[in-house]
Design a protein around this nucleic acid. Structure first.
Lengths: 199, 199
DNA sequence: ACGAATATTGTGGAAATCCGTGATGCGAAG
DNA sequence: CTTCGCATCACGGATTTCCACAATATTCGT
């Protein structure tokens, strides 16, 4: 799936005009006439960003935003509104909305915001992919290997690990070598770098 | 210096009432009748948070905020305004303001925000102190030691470092031991953990 | 010019790690 | 019941790291 701008607005005219504007600038769009419609089509792997109207029949923009956040969405959200007030904008941004713009707005700026949002989403997905790849590596470790890894990561000498886990030197070495193999590293330092920050 | 809420507002009545409110809740306050006054008193090590009016004679709240950011301030800023509009709030928050509230506002909520902001500042300062202590350690390393450290951190074996830096095995060992000593670690893994994320 | 800090190297030994080969016991899956 | 993955361990040797003792060269500031 290529990244899209997802337009969620119950006003046909707005969806059409925004869609045309964005498409004309090379940003693929998909339109949804209600929060419910978008929610039905949504899943965590959908890349892109959302242009979300505040006032809509049925579920409101902020309600959809909350729901998506709860369900683990990281999709950047640009709120669009004709009747926004300051507390609403503040609360949306503090909850992590990407932007909050009042209609009518400058077309150029809006497109720029959308492009920034798409860029942000891509970066987030790349970072998440890194993190996932690390997790998928660690998930292949056996219990013992994880225990040994933790101690190795703490800078513990093998001889101490021996005492700690009550197993022989050789066994520690075997686990160590196996987990290095599985994690795709050659030294303990590389392992530490690989897991720096994560976990 | 203990953390304070710094009230920057050109309205005497507001400063007094806010000051009284916060002091009564155990939050120490200092008042400044203008952005310029605060700026004159400010330095990076001032802990706390700022309650900043938007409209003031002379330098405006946002102008002061920009200036402080430029000068490396990390002080959380809570904007206060009687005449805020949405774009102003959005721009302030996107630039990193902690909050943006309209006057008049709920006293309890405001105090809570101030306390959150103070907490944030403290956390930021603790994190910065960690980072500083690491930097002060690395700054004591000689050029050679830093070079060796970089290679050690890359998981390079001493024998390879020998080739890389065109120096003997023994010299590498000496530098390695010296930098471990200076960094206060016993193993390469500990060093990697210490510098995890930083630098 | 002199001393301090830094960079460099050697010898030689102790300690720790790395690794191949081979083997046993156990529990889960087939 | 048999196979397979996992954990366990031993022997023995290669490699690497760690360290004390000792020494020379370079640079830099007083």
């Amino acid at each position: 799936m290529t990244p899209h701008a997802y337009l969620v607005d119950d006003d046909d005219a707005i969806r059409d005009s925004l869609g045309w504007l964005l498409e004309s600038r090379g940003v693929p769009c998909l339109s949804y006439p209600s929060a419910e419609d978008f929610l039905a089509a949504w899943n965590t792997s959908l890349p892109g960003c959302i242009l979300l109207d505040i006032r809509m029949d049925g579920m409101s923009g902020p309600e959809l935003f909350d729901l998506l956040c709860q369900r683990g969405s990281t999709l950047p959200v640009i709120f669009l509104t004709g009747h926004g007030d300051v507390p609403m904008a503040v609360s949306a941004l503090k909850q992590g909305a990407f932007d909050f713009v009042e209609k009518p707005c400058n077309d150029n700026e809006l497109v720029n915001r959308v492009i920034e949002a798409l860029q942000l989403d891509e970066n987030q997905r790349l970072a998440a992919a890194d993190s996932d790849s690390v997790n998928s590596l660690t998930s292949r470790l056996t219990t013992r290997e994880k225990q040994v890894m933790d101690l190795v990561l703490a800078g513990t000498l093998n001889k101490v690990i021996t005492d700690e886990l009550q197993i022989s030197m050789r066994t520690v070495e075997v686990h160590r070598a196996n987990l290095f193999e599985k994690m795709g590293v050659r030294t303990a330092v590389e392992l530490a770098q690989l897991l720096a920050g994560k976990r």
